[in-house]
């Protein structure tokens, strides 16, 4: 039971990170119907920007806690802003010129953008792993069990609490943005009928750009979380995280925001539990198998709408 609880905590933490990335996939798919393969690399760029800032500010575990939290907030804001600029640029350079051309064209440039970002970071930052000493240590012990093998303590670290809280806050804020603000309404309108939206005076190109900007901002948050949680990044982390988050988006129903969050959580949980109870080597296989099974029985994903043919 204690072991289960521990895995649950770990799974939710990992799932939160996937969920944050998955939102970017699902929103872009919703509004322009393409898979933004460069999104995982925006996440990676976000992690690198955060790492550079943390090192530049000289943050270590020895920094006083209050100062550390404030500084991390600053790092978060700057990383989000810079990654958003990257997201905007990718859209502007690689996707907008191809809008209205055949469907596969932007997919190909997306892969191109992804490779470009990876190589840019590889060249500018080097190909080696970049470690970061843990900034937070410790946590709460929730339960303890003593057996003949020793003591097993269920712990939730401060780091995990921070990740889960930040993710929850961002997701709530984001849901409000989509449901309550004019921008969110315009986005949903563009999802349904871009031409009509533009006839009502909505600047469709700008709305699409803002979608990329928001997705990239959330990916940067995920990047910072990933960096703090695992303490090591390299130029290639975007690929696997991106594929996982994409899987999460599809699992939850691509185009659906709550779906992306749910899908992210599920993928995180499946992966963690599989590693915990079966084998670490096959955790990715488990996550992708669940995806395959769900797609066979529910092709539109868990919370997706069935595709309706437009007449």
């Amino acid at each position: 039971m204690e072991y289960f609880l521990q895995q649950l905590i770990n799974g939710v933490t990992l799932g939160s990170i996937y969920g944050l990335i998955a939102i970017g996939y699902t929103m872009v798919y919703g509004i322009i119907g393409m898979i933004n393969f460069a999104h995982g690399d925006i996440f990676m760029v976000g992690a690198f920007i955060a790492l550079i800032l943390i090192v530049a500010l000289g943050l270590t575990a020895a920094t006083p806690l209050l100062l550390l939290i404030l500084a991390l907030g600053l790092v978060l804001v700057i990383a989000m802003a810079l990654s958003a600029a990257w997201g905007w640029t990718v859209e502007r350079v690689a996707y907008r010129p191809l809008r209205g051309s055949f469907r596969l064209a932007p997919l190909i440039t997306a892969i191109g953008a992804s490779i470009t970002l990876q190589n840019y970071i590889q060249i500018s930052q080097g190909a080696r792993n970049k470690p970061l000493q843990p900034l937070f240590s410790g946590g709460f012990t929730l339960a303890e069990k003593t057996s003949e093998q020793g003591t097993f303590a269920v712990q939730i670290s401060y780091m995990q609490i921070m990740i889960i809280v930040t993710t929850t806050v961002l997701m709530v804020g984001f849901t409000l943005l989509i449901n309550k603000t004019s921008l969110g309404r315009a986005q949903r309108a563009c999802e349904q009928d871009r031409k009509m939206a533009s006839l009502l005076g909505v600047n469709v190109d700008r709305t699409i750009s803002l979608t990329f900007v928001m997705g990239a901002g959330l990916a940067a948050v995920a990047g910072l979380m990933f960096l703090l949680y695992y303490g090591v990044i390299d130029f290639y982390i975007g690929f696997l995280a991106g594929v996982k988050a994409f899987t999460a988006a599809v699992l939850g129903g691509i185009g659906s925001l709550p779906g992306a969050m749910l899908g992210g959580l599920l993928i995180g949980l499946i992966e963690t539990f599989w590693s915990g109870y079966f084998s670490v080597e096959y955790k990715d296989v488990a996550a992708f198998s669940i995806l395959a099974i769900v797609l066979i029985f529910m092709p539109e994903g868990l919370l997706g709408r069935p595709e309706v043919e437009k007449v």
Partner: peptide, 12 residues
């Protein structure tokens, strides 16, 4: 409301 996007976007 979508039809009133521009004034709202400005105001917000």
């Amino acid at each position: 409301m979508v039809a009133q996007h521009n004034p709202l976007m400005l105001a917000s």
